[in-house]
């Protein structure tokens, strides 16, 4: 055999092999072809692709598969894309969808070391779930934040960070998509999804301590002591008291801020309101007409200045 024959032979063998294998592949692909609704791909294209699971389905594709099966998308909501995205999806599928109020995560604990004295040490893995299984925490508050940052770890959107000074997580409002991953991760149900509210203004009880007043106050300066003052003053019946703990219903709250001033322990927090007028004047409850973009939240009757969670994004 001369060299040319060898080259030709090799070429022929390999080409032949290629053709045969291609044929096999073709037939196999035909036989095992799965007919899929092409709209699934279309919808998936539209979705953010974060696979956060905030919609309740396994990833964006799972959500897309579920979406194409129905005409009414009311039961579906992608927290990342929000109402705009759901409208686009509905348009693409020719389905209907109603608007939902956008939500954001809030951390309901203000127990920084300044307010909540650390009286014991924890030695173990940086895992809230493990610490929670061990004990009430390094302070006397057995409900509050353990400060080990499991919520930060699970966040796909980099929307929650530990503040090293307060040792509490802080939500970056603009980045939070309300997917709920941090809520599942927190063993103590400290984080709650609340409606974003008009101009991002929110009022909530930033405490989840269910102890009676005296031990709660002893454990933490800014604990809700269940005194019920806020319940009485609320003109809209938005506040309920259960297990020594007040809760503000965001659907009913009209953001009048009366409860914030009333709370004796500053456990009620207001977010993104313009600064109050000086105390001497009568507290005017009308919202300030002009919006100040850099408006930071202020805790009412501001005695303690800097120590609150949930500062706005810088």
């Amino acid at each position: 055999m001369d060299d040319l024959t060898i080259v030709l032979l090799t070429l022929a063998t390999l080409s032949g092999l290629g053709i045969i294998l291609a044929l096999i592949l073709y037939f196999v692909a035909q036989k095992f072809n799965v007919v899929e609704d092409p709209r699934i791909d279309e919808v998936e294209e539209l979705l953010p692709g974060a696979n956060c699971g905030g919609c309740g389905y396994p990833g964006c594709r799972g959500f897309a598969e579920a979406c194409v099966t129905t005409d009414n998308l009311d039961a579906f909501y992608c927290p990342v894309g929000g109402n705009d995205l759901m409208k686009t999806v509905a348009n693409a599928l020719g389905a209907e969808v109603s608007e939902k109020d956008p939500q954001v995560a809030v951390v309901k604990c203000q127990g920084s070391p300044e307010h909540r004295k650390e009286i014991r040490e924890y030695d173990g893995p940086q895992s809230c779930a493990i610490a929670h299984s061990l004990f009430g925490g390094t302070t006397n508050c057995a409900n509050g934040c353990l400060g080990l940052g499991e919520c930060v770890e699970v966040c796909t959107f980099d929307a929650i960070h530990m503040n090293p000074e307060t040792n509490l997580p802080e939500v970056v409002e603009d980045a939070c998509t309300a997917c709920g991953a941090c809520i599942d991760a927190c063993p103590r149900d400290i984080i709650e999804l609340r409606n974003v509210g008009k101009k991002s203004r929110r009022i909530y009880v930033s405490c989840i301590n269910t102890d009676k007043g005296a031990p709660a106050k002893k454990a933490c300066d800014v604990a809700c002591i269940g005194c019920g003052k806020c319940v009485k003053i609320c003109p809209f019946d938005a506040i309920t008291l259960e297990n020594n703990l007040a809760y503000i219903d965001y659907e009913k709250c009209k953001l009048c801020r009366k409860c914030v001033t009333e709370c004796p322990t500053n456990a009620i927090v207001e977010l993104n309101f313009p600064p109050r007028k000086p105390k001497a004047e009568k507290p005017a409850e009308k919202k300030a007409p002009k919006t100040e973009d850099n408006a930071k939240k202020v805790i009412a009757a501001d005695k303690t200045e800097e120590s609150k969670p949930n500062t706005n994004q810088e």
């Binding site: 040490e121 924890y122 061990l134």
Partner: peptide, 8 residues
């Protein structure tokens, strides 16, 4: 001293 708490 502060008591140290950990799992067994």
């Amino acid at each position: 001293n502060k008591l140290n708490v950990s799992l067994s």
